[in-house]
Design a binder for these strands. Structure first.
Length: 482
RNA sequence: GGGGCCGUAGGGUAGCCUGGUCCAUCCUGCGGGCUUUGGGAGCCCGUGACCCGGGUUCGAAUCCCGGCGGCCCCA
């Protein structure tokens, strides 16, 4: 069924494929004269907004309130949590002057908002009745990335940074929050038809200031992984640094437990990369700004009929709540097909004189590039069914891709063999020591993503750490990452 | 941190080694005209560029120095 779909460039020359598509599909213009800062173009922004709309509705559903904090943070606030500063100070942008005069207290452009928010949390949170306290925002954040920047993936201005921050009366309730975050993430991933894995980060790679960190990864076409979501349990680390206390029912004063949940425009990068092919974007209907494009195929003497028929079909689809566009440009139909394929429109309806006469239409699917003839009367139903088929197909194809790139091995040699072609994720037994973990990172020239979450105890029975030979306590995942 | 390559219209490129033949090639895009319309049609006209600064020279896209920017490899 997918015989016409080509993914040669997509898999063999992913970087080039991606960079071209960002511009040709109208996602972003990367010619802005500051490295790592790009311009959202209307089409790309519409897709991103559709992703965010779903995030907002999930936040609403789970009782998070939206807030907006300033982008500037005084250095005195920023420096309150030691690990956090250590983790970020090398990559923050400083505001040191106002006009000609140096500032008494310098400001940073937020790289993330913990240090902006938490002194306010300490003012807002008074009582156990205020807990759990759950807020979120979607804002731009700034990090002076020194590695290669890449649109949507590694940027110096993350322009759609989602961050949910919560405070709780106990570690257990914070853990419940992490489970809720995982559930929200799962629903979002299904909405985008992207399969993923969750790993608990090793201690040396957790978020600066966190007690532990979870990361959600997807498999990119070139076999590297991309982190698209994180959940952190801070325990009371930040609460102690920012003095966030509440009064218990017994009148005691206790520090809150905190969590965060983060995502960004990398979600769009993931959608582009996972579903795309050599013809361009392939958007899940859930987020496509245009879900159906109607292309009239005029014949000289029947032009008016064909256009009227196309508009009539579009109107009916629109009334059924479908985002539809009629392409009435005066260019040849073939050219239109290529244009809309590039932009990833999930369904194209072609109507020509033959269809007008026979009361039919041709439905073409973007994911498989196949066509089918449907009756005019059944068009809304046929389009809906096609959407479902596309969602299923996209998800299943991507899941197969992800799973076929995860290899379970027991020795360093086997792991090295997997990375020979620089592709995939290796799962290998591990004793849990930092020394052995770092040793494996070095040997494999790959990063430890962490250990499967939730833990998979059964899989390590009788296994040994391939570095030290001691009994394995975990499965460790390694991959080349973005 | 170390090394290498590169910067020419909106995008992609030729020219650079061996300075003059270059008011800079071709493709694409964009504007216009004729013609066409079930998978990027054709022809014609038009539009648009040598990263910045300094130097060498009668003469610099081309050689030299510096800056800025991009890409790649190694650690």
């Amino acid at each position: 069924m997918a015989g016409k779909v080509k993914r040669e460039k997509w898999s063999e020359n992913f970087s080039e494929w991606y960079n071209e598509l960002i511009e040709t599909a109208g996602i972003q213009d990367k010619r802005y004269p500051v490295k790592g800062m790009n311009i959202w173009l209307p089409y790309g922004l519409k897709i991103m907004r559709n992703i965010e709309r779903f995030i907002h509705s999930e936040m609403e559903r789970t009782g998070h309130e939206e807030v907006l904090f300033p982008a500037l943070i005084p250095e005195t606030e920023f420096q309150k949590e030691a690990e956090h500063i250590a983790g970020f100070e090398g990559e923050v942008f400083w505001v040191t002057h106002a006009g000609h005069d140096p500032l008494d207290i310098r400001l940073i452009l937020r790289p993330t908002s913990e240090t902006a928010m938490y002194s306010m949390f300490s003012l807002w949170i008074r009582s156990h009745a205020d807990l759990p306290f759950k807020v979120y925002q979607i804002v731009n954040t700034y990090r002076y990335e020194t590695k290669h920047t890449r649109p949507l993936i590694r940027v110096r201005e993350i322009s759609r940074f989602f961050e949910a921050h919560t405070a709780h009366d106990s570690y257990e309730d914070a853990e419940r929050q992490i489970r809720e975050d995982l559930e929200i993430f799962d629903r979002l991933a299904k909405f985008l038809a992207i399969p993923y894995i969750i790993s608990k980060r090793p201690d040396w790679d957790k978020f600066p200031g966190a007690y532990y960190s979870l990361g959600a990864e997807i498999m990119m076409p070139d076999g590297r992984t991309l982190q698209i979501g994180t959940m952190h349990n801070y325990r009371q680390n930040f609460a102690k640094a920012y003095d966030i206390k509440y009064e218990t029912e017994e009148g005691e004063h206790e520090y809150v437990h905190q969590t965060t949940f983060g995502m960004s425009e990398r979600l769009l990068a993931a959608v582009m990369a996972i579903h795309g092919d050599d013809n361009g974007l392939v958007l899940p209907p859930t987020i496509a700004p245009i879900q159906v494009v109607v292309v009239p195929i005029p014949k000289k003497d029947a032009e008016a009929d064909v256009f009227a028929y196309a508009r009539e079909i579009a109107e009916e689809l629109r009334n059924a709540g479908i985002r539809v566009h009629v392409d009435e440009r005066d260019i040849r139909p073939g050219r239109k097909y290529y244009d809309w394929e590039l932009k990833g429109v999930p369904v194209r309806i072609e109507v020509g004189p033959r269809d007008v006469e026979g009361r039919k239409a041709v439905i073409a699917r973007r994911d498989t590039l196949t066509k089918e003839v449907v009756e005019r009367a059944e068009i809304v139903e046929a389009v809906r069914k096609t959407f479902d088929g596309i969602m299923d197909n996209l998800y299943n194809r991507a899941k197969e891709f992800l799973e076929s790139h995860i290899k379970r091995v027991d020795t360093i040699e086997e792991a090295k063999a997997v990375f020979e072609d620089r592709r995939g994720i290796v799962e290998i037994p591990w004793c849990g020591s930092e020394e052995c973990g770092l040793k494996m990172e070095e040997e494999l020239d790959a990063k430890m993503l962490g250990t499967p979450y939730p833990e998979e105890k059964a899989r390590i029975e009788g296994k040994k750490c391939p570095v030290c030979g001691r009994e394995a306590k975990f499965i460790a995942r390694f991959a080349r990452t973005y």
